[in-house]
Design a binder for these strands. Structure first.
Lengths: 352, 352
DNA sequence: CTGAAAGCGCTAACAT
DNA sequence: ATGTTAGCGCTTTCAG
């Protein structure tokens, strides 16, 4: 079964083409195309159709997508770009959603890594210009104004998932955490926590988007935001121990904490374990964001989490709308949810 | 800007082609191709070359990769397939390596999800048959014998990263954890642990590959494997608490544990925290495998870890060798490393 | 209902 | 040193 030895280059075995199928059946290539693509408005005699279908199967015919792309002037692939610093969990989840959406249209996914050279020479732009991809989805990727302007100017189809893009012209998959955050705060309040602190890693973006939601939720529950209970770490990487000490001294147990990052929450759990602070009895912790490890930490971490799969799916659908010229919805907004786990549930059942 | 003929396309603004460049300079399309591709053995007058280069830049010419693919009968993309259940962290790390390797050859990455239909109709096979991809990299993907046989029979270029493929014909990126495991065991021994247990999730593959390494390392350190200290969970998902209880009753603290999975190790850390067992003083834990959260658990988790980036990079290089017909190395073996963290370091410094 | 034919943009023999 | 030309496999007018 193996190919002849001595061939310097592993040649692709010659594929059967639609012409071969046509010859086999004794019809023209056009007819084969009509049948196989179910071209609307073209009538084919049933027996002809049947014969073509059978011959295609018998000859093991697979349409050459490159040729189709060539003719159609589109690559049938979309580029997905992410920064490297993005949580791989988020990215993979979104990717699953994108994947399912593009598969429906017989599109594939080409991965782009955001090695930004400059605004006009990023990898995804080169991919687009060379017809490798028909459109771009930015998932959690930072995006310069210059690049946005360039893409809009040049009519490059793209959508942005979960980024803080201000430009009104850009199609964005937005998410709304207002309800989920309210649920989280109510959950804490119902368990008797009167102090609900907010801890932030201080990165501008997260702060700007998440902190106001916290404020809304606190006030929506008829509580008040105490500045003492809002801590913003300017330099999270180092020396957090001291900052936690300072925070705990101010806050005093029992206290609840909403953290704007998973990592910060995990660190806090570590800190609590080290100091013998009981979670959640003395310190309830809820993180904003999702992580595969929310279930695995001890105690498992309650989260306010984004609809990742749906974000991917919707994002891809929007991109197709743009590429098809149907502008149905500029902005899609999806809801976050609150997933209570042991780090905030007082009367929790013993579970692993 | 462009649009010489005033043709207005809805989808994509008409791209400038090599023909346009040729006309602009007053040479033939062939010359443009020769210059832009630096075709070896073709002499071009320096001033001609210069003129072509300048015109290409001036006209903002970008070669159409689809057309090139069509002509060359290759897609310039390789498929990367992974199972969904793979740790996304591993996958992303390997992907980074693959990415860098394929970029060097002007190849792109097409993502395939392993929705296996049957041995001959998996998505990556359809992608290959329709010329969407020129070769396949399986990263942590399970792979049936039937599928392997099919791909070998049909001369489909593929390499396998980190899988337990037995077939000698398959090009595999293997890894070797012997040294790393030995280091881990020595590390435990040096800290005075006399009992070094082994916990496995019992999945056949991990067990078959990792447990023998444990045995080698234990014996390499002049110790002996005690069957009491080797526990294999047949049903890990549920009821682990009781199994941990049973294990601890047999093992008795102080004891060290090497776990063949990160998740199992995290669970064990949770269990220890719940039971008040001190880690690492009473129970030292080392996991085999990498995780973004090894640093974030409390205590941080020591790991014996794989060279993920290199595995991706090497895998891609091997695939190109196969596609080019140069069989340089059937098997590449890369070394694991041992990363000691707090879960196994007795005199650890306080660190977050 | 179906066929003939014209390309999509590129590369590589083969000419000159 | 450069030009001519023949496709790669497909879709899609336009003709019958």
């Amino acid at each position: 079964m193996l190919a002849k030895k001595g061939v310097r280059r592993v040649k692709r075995s010659k594929n059967v083409s639609s012409r071969d199928v046509a010859r086999e059946v004794g019809v023209s290539q056009a007819t084969v195309s009509y049948v196989l693509n179910n071209v609307p408005g073209i009538k084919i005699k049933p027996e002809t159709r049947q014969a073509v279908l059978e011959a295609a199967k018998r000859l093991n015919y697979h349409p050459n997508l490159i040729a189709k792309s060539m003719r159609l002037q589109k690559s049938m692939s979309i580029g997905v770009v992410s920064d490297k610093n993005v949580s791989s969990y988020w990215f993979m989840k979104v990717l699953e959603g994108i994947k399912d959406a593009v598969s429906n249209k017989n599109y594939s996914i080409t991965l782009c890594f955001n090695k930004t050279l400059d605004d006009r020479n990023a990898e995804h732009l080169n991919y687009y210009r060379s017809n490798r991809i028909d459109g771009i989805i930015f998932a959690f990727s930072s995006l310069s104004d210059g690049q946005i302007a360039y893409m809009l100017d040049n009519n490059i189809p793209f959508v942005v998932i979960h980024s803080n893009v201000k430009n009104e012209m850009v199609r964005v998959v937005k998410t709304d955490m207002t309800n989920a955050m309210l649920q989280a705060v109510m959950h804490l309040k119902e368990q008797g926590f009167e102090k609900i602190a907010y801890l932030s890693t201080g990165s501008g973006d997260k702060w700007d988007r998440r902190y106001p939601e916290y404020v809304k939720a606190i006030e929506g529950c008829g509580m008040k935001v105490h500045d003492d209970l809002v801590v913003r770490f300017d330099a999270f990487e180092e020396g957090t121990e001291g900052i936690f000490d300072g925070f705990m001294a101010k806050a005093q147990v029992p206290c609840a904490v909403i953290s704007d990052s998973n990592n910060l929450a995990f660190s806090l759990l570590k800190y609590a374990a080290r100091k013998g602070i009981k979670v959640p009895e003395q310190l309830a912790v809820i993180a904003i964001g999702s992580s595969r490890f929310a279930d695995l930490s001890y105690p498992s971490l309650s989260t306010v989490q984004a609809p990742l799969y749906e974000m991917g799916y919707k994002g891809a659908e929007m991109l197709f709308d743009i590429m098809d010229g149907n502008i149905i919805n500029d902005v899609v907004t999806l809801e976050w949810s609150f997933a209570p786990r042991d780090s905030s549930k007082l009367n929790r059942n013993a579970q692993l």
